[in-house]
Amino acid sequence: MDLSSFLAATIRMAIPLLIAALGLVVSERAGLINIGVEGTMLTGAFAAFAVAYYTNNYWLGMLAGMLAGCFMTLIFAVASIRFRAPQVVIGCAINMLGSGFTAVLFRKMFFDAQTGGTQVTPFPPIQIPGLSSIPFIGEVFFQHNIIVYIGFILVPAIWFLMNRTSIGTRIIAVGEHPKAADSLGINVFTTRYAATLFSGLLMGMAGAYLAIAQSNTFQVDMTGGKGYIAMAVVVLGKWKPGGVLLGALIFGGSNALQMTLQNAGLNIPNNLILMVPYIVTVLAVLAACKKKAVDASAKGVAYEKA
């Protein structure tokens, strides 16, 4: 794999982490700890694949994946906001639910002698006119499918939302000091519900990307820990969209490196090669923890209106 192919693979691998992490930025700044990213992405991936298969339309598949992600975060939101259940516990339950539920449905609906290995038509790559033909740069940046471009557009969009709009101000306020926000007339519960559901849309999109954009099929537990890595991306990026982009590219590069090493035919045990992204995750988070970051002061604390 030459350098341009490696960098293009880095971008493709980074996109699901980037999109999911941007969703987490919004919900965590609102004061919620949702570790159920893995299960939410997995549910989005299955829903996208199933709908794309039966409708032969990848846009409907993407919509289904986003709605499925939204549904999973709705479960989390109701349990943690309405019933004030421990957020970490609910997140763990979401992960187990997503893994088990999608595995059962996939085997029931698709995995038999007639339909095993079912594939769908994925999002096609889009050649940006003029730019895609530029040597090196064209292959790296301008020959991807539309979800890759949407992922990059989301970075400034989320930054603008959080830093230049009243919506972002409210989200940050309920995450920093919900009682003070409540006293100013901000509905803490509504804001947290909205932030959580929005994050679910992006997590579902990230999962759908894996099934119908990065590949053209669904596999049991196909997220392979990417939900957890997305959480690390948020920490590494200091809860800032620009930092999250950089973090996603670092982890995307580690995944691309893993694939390169696997295809190089080196005399290295495969299990050691598979460890590369997770070793990078641990080292990156340890490095990020040495620097002070701006995080929601009331994150993980259930709010009870007086």
Rank of each mutant, 00 (worst) to 15 (best):
T190Q: 02
P156W: 08
G224S: 13
Y58P: 03
G252D: 09
A68H: 03
L60R: 00
A287C: 07
G39S: 08
C70W: 11
I268H: 00
F251P: 04
F46E: 00
A194K: 10
D2H: 07
V26T: 05
V37R: 06
S199Q: 11
G300K: 03
T281N: 03
A103C: 13
F141R: 09
F152V: 04
V89Q: 03
A20W: 06
Y53M: 11
D221Y: 02
V234R: 14
G100D: 12
A206S: 15
A21M: 08
G151C: 14
G98P: 15
V301L: 00
Y303K: 04
D112A: 12
S27M: 07
L60C: 02
I279D: 06
A213Y: 11
E304Q: 15
Q219E: 13
S133L: 11
V25A: 10
M162V: 04
G224I: 09
I94K: 10
Y149C: 09
P135Y: 04
F49I: 10
G185F: 08
A230Y: 12
L249T: 01
I81A: 01
K179G: 14
I273C: 10
L257W: 03
V285N: 05
I33S: 08
I212T: 12
L42P: 06
T118R: 01
G36T: 03
T55M: 04
N270L: 10
M259Y: 13
F110A: 08
V235F: 15
G168Q: 05
